[in-house]
Amino acid sequence: MPELIPPTTDLHAAWLTAHREWGPGRHEDGFGLLPTDRPETAAGFAAWIARLEAGSATATCRWIVEGDEVLGGIALRHELTAATAALGHIGYGVKPSARGRGIGSFALSRMLEHARTLGLDRVLLVCLVGNTASARLIERHGGLLESEPDVVRRYWITL
């Protein structure tokens, strides 16, 4: 059974395995990874985890894990800022080999519950137009399309 946990240096090797499965690029929004982060080394990984912990007042980052395996990540940005308007309040990713098992739905449900406890009354989620699996997931959780999409679909979920 998967669970959501705060990022931890204890899962460095497992996180690197998941990251390698995704391949190059910045497509793991749920991890809060920035282009300047260097998670490959132990020191860089620890610095990244420390940065995520330091930002916990404005964003909640959780890893989706099962046992000692990192399946994905999900992040909730607490405020509507310019970055949130572009990326959404909630960003998530599930590694390719773990998709199709309901893991994204599990994680999104838990993060929507957390958003409610923070007092948010609605949240924005975005996905690329071609990402039909993500669009279906958001719609199953009550996402209403804001407008006709061009590059990204913008959905609002009322909590």
Rank of each mutant, 00 (worst) to 15 (best):
T117I: 07
T132Y: 14
G143I: 04
L125N: 05
V152E: 10
N131F: 08
R122F: 03
V123K: 02
C127E: 06
E113D: 14
R122L: 00
I138D: 07
L120Q: 11
V151F: 05
M111S: 05
E139P: 13
L108D: 12
L128D: 13
V152D: 10
V129G: 01
S147I: 00
A107K: 02
A135M: 04
H114L: 10
L124S: 02
V126Y: 04
G130Y: 09
L112M: 05
G130C: 05
L118P: 00
R110F: 12
L108V: 11
T117G: 12
G119N: 08
L108G: 10
V126P: 01
N131W: 04
L128E: 12
A107F: 09
G119C: 10
D150W: 10
L144P: 00
S134M: 13
A133F: 15
M111G: 04
L124Y: 05
R140A: 15
V129H: 12
G119L: 10
V151I: 04
R116G: 13
L145N: 09
L137Y: 14
E139D: 12
M111T: 07
E148M: 05
D150L: 05
S109H: 15
R136F: 15
V129C: 07
L112G: 01
R136G: 15
R116H: 13
L125S: 05
R122T: 02
L137T: 12
R116L: 06
R122P: 03
V126M: 02
R136A: 15
E113Q: 09
L112K: 00
G142W: 06
A107R: 00
A135W: 02
H141K: 14
G143W: 01
E146N: 01
F106M: 12
A133G: 13
R110N: 06
